[in-house]
Design a protein around this nucleic acid. Structure first.
Length: 526
RNA sequence: GCCGCGGUAGUAUAGCCCGGCCAAGUAUGCGGGCCUUUCGAGCCCGUGACCCGGGUUCAAAUCCCGGCCGCGGCACCA
């Protein structure tokens, strides 16, 4: 039986079964497992080795939304800085990360720095050895790998707790050098994933050579990510861990640790990566570029980078980023957001609060014959719908009694095309007929003022500037370069203090710099 | 190579756990219309997708098997 005949039959038997169901309007994030209001604790645990990028916003924002907004519990910020050697923490990053989070609107209740909690980790390491959950391994890396690949225990594995504790004290007191001893957590030697087997919980780092920015050379035995993170999640009462998929194996490792200590592992959600098409998110690539070309990039906050600071410089609102993260949700698949999409969301938020200004790229002067004198100065609102944004006076150029304006060369070219004349409306000013005049030039004849006339004639409407205009440069990011557009903009931009404007028929821009003679602007998006 | 996760329109996402309300919803993009101070916004209409092949079933996007593709991990990094 096909679907339609089934429906027909069902309609006879039980018509109510076919009734329409209401669909939900807004997209909501799914519920968390084992979660109840007021009882959820989430955390965001960045490594302060660099600034945050859009991808990091996913765990940060989701942890905040779930922890605070949805379940009204607690959110913890924890700096995971236990590797002074390879992922060396950057002192500025501790501050910058908090700034980025505040900008996003992410609020946290508690804040921790792991490098300041070393004694806690040492105590737990001892406790773990006491219950035979860990041992000191004196093998070289190659030796250990051999035992692991043949699924055999390394000779140090069955040492007594007392001997392990003694060796651990030796580690702490500096008896061993880098690579000579590690603490390993016991796991199933036959775990199908060999990378999990007896993973390293502590290793020695020579902090004379690699001092930690916060604790200098005070500690030489450092917990690995899996140890410190796992222990802290328990100690800080974290109930739900929201993190990226690259941590899936880590979760398996950490569960072994929890088992040894008789702890219950928190609920975990692994989601995919969040990329932004056309933007560099990689910390290492950004680092390399800014170090190599210090005069081409303003730093990690350059608007051409996908860092949170860069997107902020580019004119992307925090609300837009929140919306994207919320929309992308907690699926385990990677998400690659297009710039069009981010721009569309951002534009909607910017639209109502942005003043409109006219900007004329590559200006051509056009004088209007027979223009009535009252056109020499007109008033125009800054926004078609939002009257709160006020209005300004636009003045025409008086050229020996003739009133003239500047319009974009490309508009004139497009308008005239192959012909000699065409009708057009200069926005807010008048309807005119433009015709070729002189070499490469154009002039216009006045037709009427009324917008309704323009509509009747189905005229195109183009922007223009008059005598009260100043120079403008618009920098337009294209990949890692800037395209530069030069032209004239209304001089009211100099007196206003807005950060963002919509240039009519051009796009949204952000003010970078103003001088008495003009402005430098950054193109945000259409 | 080994271990793990996933594949819904151009992009992102809902539905998959608990098969039938799904001839698949939403956002953005694209096409058209209305409105308008704009090639912006708003409103309306339209366009466009269940990776492939088998199986189970009256019925599969949903369950099972195989293939293909993508991603992650395989660190004394986080």
């Amino acid at each position: 039986m096909d679907t339609s005949s089934q429906r027909a039959l069902l309609n006879e038997l039980d018509p109510s079964a076919l009734a329409e169901k209401d669909r939900e309007e807004t997209k909501e994030l799914p519920e968390l497992p084992n979660a109840s209001i007021g009882k959820v604790v989430t955390r965001f645990a960045p490594n302060p080795d660099y600034v945050l990028h859009l991808g990091n916003a996913r765990p940060a924002v989701l942890s905040y939304i779930y922890g605070k907004e949805i379940y009204r519990g607690k959110m913890i910020l924890r700096f995971e800085d236990t590797d002074p050697r390879i992922k060396r923490p950057l002192p500025e990053a501790y501050i910058q990360i908090k700034e980025d989070l505040r900008w996003l609107g992410v609020k946290w209740d508690e804040e921790y720095i792991q490098s300041l909690r070393m004694e806690i980790y040492y105590d737990l390491a001892k406790k773990l050895m006491e219950v035979s959950g860990a041992y000191i391994d004196l093998c070289s890396q190659e030796e250990f790998r051999k035992y692991r690949s043949s699924r055999k225990p390394c000779p140090h594995r069955e040492r007594s707790p007392e001997d392990n504790l003694e060796l651990f004290d030796k580690m702490l007191s500096g008896h061993f050098g880098e690579g000579e001893a590690v603490v390993r957590v016991k796991t199933d030697l036959n775990d199908p994933d060999p990378s999990i087997v007896d993973w390293v919980a502590f290793r020695i780092i020579d902090t004379d050579r690699y001092p930690h920015p916060l604790t200098g050379d005070r500690y030489i035995v450092w917990p690995t990510y899996n140890f410190a993170s796992a222990v802290d999640d328990k100690l800080m009462g974290v109930t739900h861990i929201l993190r990226a998929r690259e941590h899936q194996q880590n979760t398996k490792k950490q569960i072994y640790l929890y088992r040894h200590l008789g702890w219950r592992y928190p609920e975990v959600i692994h989601f995919g990566r969040l990329k932004l098409q056309g933007f560099i998110l990689s910390k290492s690539r950004i680092k390399k570029l800014t170090e190599r070309y210090p005069d081409r990039f303003s730093g990690p906050n350059d608007p051409r980078f996908g860092t949170l600071a860069g997107l902020r410089e580019r004119g992307i609102l925090a609300e837009t980023i929140l919306e994207i993260v919320r929309d992308v949700g907690i699926k385990p698949t990677d998400a690659s957001i297009s710039w069009d999409n981010i721009a569309a969301l951002n534009r909607k938020k910017l639209d109502y609060r942005s003043r409109r200004l006219m900007y004329v790229e590559d200006p051509v002067k056009i004088c209007i014959e027979d223009a009535p004198r009252e056109l020499s100065s007109i008033e125009a609102r800054y926004h078609p719908d939002n009257d709160k944004l006020g209005s300004r006076i636009l003045k025409l150029i008086d050229n020996d009694g003739k009133l003239c304006v500047y319009v974009s060369r490309s508009d004139i070219d497009r308008l005239l095309g192959g012909g000699d004349s065409a009708k057009v409306r200069f926005m807010e000013l008048a309807n005119v007929e433009v015709y070729r005049s002189g070499e490469n030039g154009a002039a216009a004849r006045y037709i009427s003022r009324d917008l309704d006339d323009a509509k009747r004639m189905r005229l195109k409407i183009i922007q223009w500037v008059g005598s009260n205009s100043v120079n403008a440069i618009v920098k337009y990011p294209v990949g890692l370069r800037f395209r530069v557009s030069r032209g004239l903009i209304e001089d009211s931009i100099l007196g206003l203090n807005d950060h963002v404007y919509q240039l009519v028929r051009y796009g949204f821009v952000k003010v970078l710099r103003k001088t008495p003679k003009g402005a430098v602007l950054l193109y945000i998006h259409e």
